[in-house]
Amino acid sequence: MIQLKDLTKKFDTGKTVLTAVDNVNLSIDDGEIFGIIGYSGAGKSTLIRLLNGLEKPSSGTVDVNGQKITAIKGADLRKARQKVSMIFQHFNLLWSRTVQENIEFPLEIAGVPKAKRESRVKELVELVGLAGRENAYPSQLSGGQKQRVGIARSLANDPEVLLCDEATSALDPETTDAILDLLVDINKRLGLTIVLITHEMHVIRKICHRVAVMEGGKVVELGDVLTIFRSPKKDITKRFVAQVTETEDSTATIKHLRELYPTGELVKLIFVGEQTEQPILTKLIRNYPVEVNIVQGDISHTQRGAYGTLILQLKGSKQEIADAILFLKQEKVQTEVMAND
């Protein structure tokens, strides 16, 4: 388990004191994929560097599996860092070394004999899907392959925690999804705790169990990913959720439909978990005398279950529409009447 208690990091710029991390308290469970999301300057990169001792806090403590990272130094800190590994946005590979040599590098530093190094590299190359590319140099690899090398290298010393610093930000969407799938597979196979920082809600939605939202150095919202998607509380969290639940096209469609059907109501429904599989719309159409037009729909899958949004246009009398909306709420579907602009 990772525990952060009253963690604060300040930087003295000479003219002023900048608080990058402001009294953060978090607990991250063993085997969890935990996301930290925030825009540039939120403090998330500083926070992740505090986790492995690359930065020392101004106050507070970092405890990783019973060991206080903030209280050790020298050889003990270097040993502890072997159990808290890290992958980076820009891969940080050694360009004069092959794939095999890059993966071997931390084992060399740790003094592992050559035969054991080669055996370990073979396992890791298979794990990350790079069999046959052992003798290639980074310049001969795609972005996704480079990140796979980075992941394999980070696993060389059998870490207990893997930190991912914007690990997919430099990749195209398809490659990003492949790398995220690999991280989920590694998490399940090895039981590895993964802490991932990002500014992309798609990444959080796809692989994280829980998420902390950072703004101005503080954790402003924390919870299960599915719960955060269903009912974000802070404005910044709502903006992040909107990254993957709303599009410009839907906004234009809503405006167009309001012009076409000025007497109807546009209603946004949110389905969570088992609700996404229930025939709720069928019941609505059969039992209520309203005209139902589907404007837009989407179902996304998180590690905790499915999350779906649906925008309907309901036409009928005010009472008929009110009865239909009441039915939806009674079915425990989160229902929002979209106000006319």
Rank of each mutant, 00 (worst) to 15 (best):
I325E: 11
P279H: 04
K56G: 00
A339S: 12
L257R: 12
V203A: 09
I28E: 05
R78Y: 08
P173W: 10
P106R: 10
M201R: 06
A167W: 01
V64R: 04
N25L: 06
G150V: 03
L130W: 01
Q296C: 01
R205S: 13
R239I: 02
I179N: 04
K315P: 00
R189T: 13
I194A: 02
H301I: 13
A156Q: 03
I197F: 08
S85A: 15
K44C: 07
G144Q: 06
L314W: 03
T263H: 14
K233A: 12
I109P: 03
T176D: 08
L328F: 11
T263V: 05
T193E: 06
E246F: 08
C208I: 02
A322C: 00
D177K: 13
L171E: 08
A212F: 06
L162K: 09
R210M: 02
Q67P: 00
S142W: 08
I285H: 00
G41L: 09
K73V: 01
I36F: 07
A212T: 04
K233G: 12
G111Q: 02
D22K: 14
T302D: 11
E320I: 01
Q140W: 01
T282K: 10
S231M: 11
H256R: 14
A71M: 09
E246Q: 14
E265Q: 15
M338N: 00
P232M: 09
V203Y: 06
V149T: 08
F229L: 15
V219I: 14
V62E: 01
Q243W: 05
S59P: 00
T247R: 06
F229A: 03
L196E: 02
R120C: 03
K255Y: 05
A324P: 03
S154H: 10
D63I: 14
G216R: 09
D323R: 13
